[in-house]
Nucleic acid binder design. Structure first.
Lengths: 179, 179
DNA sequence: GATGCACCTGTCGAACTCGACATGTCAATA
DNA sequence: TATTGACATGTCGAGTTCGACAGGTGCATC
């Protein structure tokens, strides 16, 4: 399962509590790569601990438990990331919505595409700003996947932006032609 | 559920059988947007028919049934695509693997990143070739989402390609610095 | 001292997914 | 005519996900 590997990866970068892991999934990780709520995370942590892939290395206030990966857990993670795989799981509601546009009337599709262009531009500049504020010396991934993720997200939004503009151009040309 | 809307979208472009829908999900749609196997599709078609969002408009050889969207189904689809939504479902094993790279040793990460660069370049040119072969006159989506999807995929791969190269640069610079 | 809020962990049930299994058809090729 | 393979639809059970519900803590502010 991918969730277990996502948790191992997060913990390999830095030991965290279930609560902190939940926040990481709510941020960039959950935005581009893999979503999970705390209701999936806590039971999965328990399973990983049972398997010996993680251990509790600190107990803090309010019953919080900080988990770290064990050597076995790290080996499992490394193996999973390094092994090339056939097609993995894909599920993206945003992208699905983009594909479904071609099923609508061009006028409707244009409304949505213009919204996408606007939104992608906003998010792109937001992420670019984050990248600019990060001192170049920060090693990738030191604090979660912030740095790599921000750049990935920025490029992703730029690609979507370009695609939506291209699609608008195609639709407008098709409309002008049929008129 | 998104699966039902994906089916409505596919059928709105063109009536199809469950078998043909399954093939569409195995192609570009399932690659970038939403995966589904026939074991999800057939029961969902039955549910959509029950709700009156699709109907069987043709019965062919080998027990095949061709479904079409009803006006109610189309209205439901339109509403779903046009309504702006908070964050939708995201799940992408490939991207997750990219994020997890920063949890590995730089040497391991570089191996994977170089593989990504190569793969993204291949897929990008493959899709670009498809785009070039498509006569410009074909209206978007006439045969599934081929045209829009190919362009989207091509831009996606180009973005991943650029990102991976950037990441390699960062990692190599960091290694050189620490050496 | 009460109130609110972010912190922190958990269960349960309904819905959804997915691989394995099952069944039969039509056409081409050996 | 036997075999192969794409066509075509379906069920079942195990595993996964996710929203709703639940409950306790430490701190700051009123």
């Amino acid at each position: 399962m991918s969730l277990s590997h996502a948790l191992l990866g997060l913990l390999a970068v830095q030991p965290r509590s279930g609560y902190e892991l939940t926040k990481a999934f709510a941020a960039d990780l959950g935005r581009y790569a893999w979503q999970a709520g705390h209701t999936s995370i806590y039971p999965e942590l328990a399973r990983l601990a049972e398997r010996g892939h993680v251990t509790v290395t600190e107990e803090g206030a309010r019953g919080s438990r900080t988990y770290s990966v064990t050597p076995e857990g790290y080996a499992e993670l490394r193996e999973w990331v390094l092994t090339p795989r056939r097609r993995g799981k894909v599920r993206n509601e945003e992208v699905l919505r983009m594909f479904l546009l071609s099923a609508l009337e061009p006028a409707d599709a244009l409304v949505v595409l213009r919204r996408i262009v606007e939104h992608a531009a906003e998010e792109g500049t937001r992420l670019r700003k984050i990248m600019d504020d990060v001192p170049a010396a920060i090693p990738p991934g030191a604090d979660g996947f912030g740095y790599l993720a921000a750049e990935f997200g920025a490029r992703q939004f730029e690609a979507v932006h370009g695609w939506a503009q291209w699609a608008i151009g195609k639709l407008e040309a098709a409309e002008a032609e049929s008129a």
